[in-house]
Design a protein around this nucleic acid. Structure first.
Lengths: 327, 327
DNA sequence: AAGTGTTGCGGAACCGGTTCCGCAACACAA
DNA sequence: TTGTGTTGCGGAACCGGTTCCGCAACACTT
């Protein structure tokens, strides 16, 4: 099981190793020599040593993917999409996890650069000066998913538009007293764009809105749901910034003995698979995580070949109007 | 931003590069030289080129992780655990996805070997002769999670015991007419061990059991739930082999207008987070995926250092007795 | 004073590829 | 026949580390 090297091939084929290398990389090699080398390579199952190659070329066939957490639905689906496409194209995905620490995002940018990945796909939550500095330092194409910044190529979800569209639908249905449960503003896409989209829709018809702020964790939204149970006579709809929050709110309401959508309606955002199979099924916005991953892979590969692509690309969204919101 | 090399350091410090290398790897170097080198390294932010190192050493600080899918709860949580521990210990996780194709598992074993990972953690579904062959060929420590085989170090969930314990509990509560919804047998752990554990518990009290077989997908279980709605007067409990199946069954029952646990009880297996926040909350078995990941990381690292560890290690489980099953 | 270790260090080879350079062989045009 | 190009190939240098070997300097015995 010893590693077969290019030297072995050269020796067995009776040529110089530079010739073998040329054969492998499409240089000029005579037909006769070509045949000999090909035979030897086939017989020995030769595979070039990637380290030796990378040592010289200072490049790999890897694309780094920076994710805030490994166990989020959005991240998982996006990774799937990325991996599929990358594999098709002969690249490998190298996932690194930041455990939701901004500091580690920056660390990992440098780290991936050290590992000579060809490009980086970054599932971001926030973009700071130091991120930009890192991106500039490392001299590697970076594609940002889920957030945007004018200086970084980005592939973003139409959070504002989707939120607006969903909010508008609710307004059309006549909801006028709304609870909005969002997250902190440091997450631009979720904390700001989504909220602003909803608020715009609500304000257009002068609806009454009460805002709560929570985290991305299900548990943290439960008490909010419980608290909301007190005012189900007034408010008719709880709009949540994520499906996880909706889940927590639903639980809280259930704990307090309220039924959905009977006593009050609840909507989510994100489009987790299982929102559909719950009872009641949850009204939400479906974001195409997986397809976005694939597109991101395509885009980063284009960036590698030097193609120019728009700095900012939007994905699509789809309203999922289901049982949890009363018409 | 050009790469600083060991030659640069040597030149700047006025020593031979072999001395620098010795300094870095703990060889004998005089105090004075040591200081000079240290200063230069600090000033230049020198970091050794990993490719050059690996080229010589034929090793990396990477642990390959083979997962059947990127978007399963179990896989995600396990990866989290692995990554955490590996990062602590100065290793990196390299995840490869097989998209549930057995063939690709084997491919990836060889592939990871080619990339000279130090060890491999394999979240398996089934173990064939060809897997064993691959494992033997590559000469790299492999740790199998979730399945077992006498020739491979494995870390397994106590599927049988957990299923037995849960089934026994149901028997104690007096359920006697049971529906079991499982998966195909090719998955030893889920398809066989879990089923057998349950059946054992049921048989001990001569309960009446009807068995259905489905897949790991939520959707495929929905029709089963719908079909079961016909017999809620007879059967009192649907035992599902996974939480996903339980979710589908619940949906099917809901579609048919049945309530849980009013008309019939339903239990899951696996312990997804959100089984707790559903309404009704789902009775299930919690398996410690994340902690298992961490342990797996520890174990593979032990294997690297040549320690001997038991061929087979069991994890724990915890019954989560909740609302979806009537007492 | 001669012999025996020990320590610190430089030089060179090596890991397995890629690439540059130059030479030989051959064809073809002038 | 000489000159110009093209093609095929070997040799050597290089990528950035690690490691083996040998030598010099300096104790420390005996």
């Amino acid at each position: 099981m010893k590693q077969v090297t290019i030297n072995d091939i050269a020796k067995l084929a009776g040529v110089a190793k530079s010739t073998v290398s040329r054969y492998l990389n499409g240089g000029s090699v005579g037909q006769e020599t070509r045949d000999k080398i090909e035979r030897v390579i086939r017989e020995t199952n030769y595979e070039p040593n990637q380290f030796a190659q990378s040592l010289k070329s200072k490049q790999t066939k890897m694309i780094g993917v920076i994710v805030p957490r490994l166990d989020s639905y959005a991240a998982s689906r996006t990774m799937m999409g990325i991996d599929e496409r990358l594999t098709e194209r002969g690249y490998q995905m190298l996932v690194v996890n930041t455990a939701q620490q901004t500091e580690r995002e920056i660390e990992q940018l440098y780290n991936l650069a050290k590992q000579k990945v060809a490009g980086i796909i970054w599932l971001g939550t926030t973009v700071t000066e130091r991120h930009l500095q890192a991106i500039q330092d490392i001299q590697i194409p970076v594609l940002l998913i889920g957030q945007e910044h004018e200086q970084v190529h980005s592939l973003v979800y139409p959070d504002f538009d989707a939120a607006y569209a969903l909010g508008k639908q609710f307004m059309d249905w006549g909801h006028r007293d709304i609870i909005y449960v969002g997250v902190e503003e440091y997450d631009i896409a979720v904390g700001q764009a989504r909220r602003d989209g909803f608020l715009r829709a609500f304000q257009e018809v002068d609806a009454n809105v009460t805002t709560y702020t929570t985290t991305f964790k299900i548990e943290d939204a439960i008490p909010i749901g419980e608290a909301l149970a007190e005012i189900t006579d007034r408010a008719t709809l709880v709009v949540c910034a994520t499906d996880n929050i909706a889940l927590g709110v639903l639980k809280g309401l259930a704990n307090a003995g309220k039924t959905v959508p009977g006593d009050i309606s609840v909507s989510g955002f994100g489009g987790y698979d299982f929102t559909e199979v719950l009872h009641p099924s949850i009204t939400t916005v479906h974001l195409p995580y997986r397809r976005t991953g694939s597109r991101a892979a395509d885009m980063i590969l284009q960036l590698l070949t030097g193609d120019t692509i728009p700095m900012k690309t939007f994905t699509t969204f789809e309203l999922k109007l289901r049982e949890s919101v009363d018409i």
